[in-house]
């Protein structure tokens, strides 16, 4: 998705001003001559400045549309892929504590393999092998506590 420079400029200006406004509510710290508000204010001001400059240059360049969609947006398959990648990550974050790493990782990989068109008979073995290998590397060798979830009673 491409935004017209004018539009991204306006967004940045709004973001910058919001930050400055938020920072105005930060209290000063007794004993410190520079409070916690100064840096956010400078940054917010900088963003607002960039926003104004972008709006100006965007106006000058002129642009056909405010928002220009990439050509993949027209193709449902690709939109689905995009949603799938995001959805897979959300699924992992929500499910891993309950289901455990093995099940979540397997489903995560199998789902993505399936929709990226990996040959069917390879999906389950590759997904299982990668999940096991990652678990061995991170959990066993590097002692990262990947959650067990449902399989807790088999934990090693």
């Amino acid at each position: 998705m491409r935004l017209n420079d004018t539009l991204s400029g306006w967004l940045m200006l709004i973001l910058g001003l919001t930050i400055v406004a938020c920072a105005l509510t930060f209290p000063p710290m007794p004993g410190q001559n520079i409070g916690p508000a100064l840096f956010p204010q400078i940054i917010g001001g900088g963003l607002a400045f960039c926003g104004v400059a972008l709006v100006r240059s965007g106006r000058r360049a002129g642009g056909p549309a405010w928002v220009e969609m990439d050509d993949w947006v027209g193709r449902p398959r690709m939109v689905f892929n995009f949603a799938l990648v995001v959805g897979a990550l959300v699924f992992y974050a929500l499910a891993v504590d309950t289901l455990g790493f093995f099940i979540t990782g397997f489903v995560f990989l199998a789902g993505l393999f399936f929709s990226f068109g990996v040959r069917r008979r390879w999906i389950a073995p590759v997904a299982a092998a990668v999940t096991l290998a990652l678990h061995f590397g991170f959990y066993t060798l590097l002692r990262v506590p990947l959650p067990w979830g449902w399989l807790e009673r088999f934990a090693w």
Binding site: R121, I123, A124, A127, W150
Partner: peptide, 18 residues
Amino acid sequence: MCRSFAAMLLSWFALIAP
């Protein structure tokens, strides 16, 4: 295949879970 594999795993775990 994927489904039967997962089903197999689950039933196996349910049976021998201490």
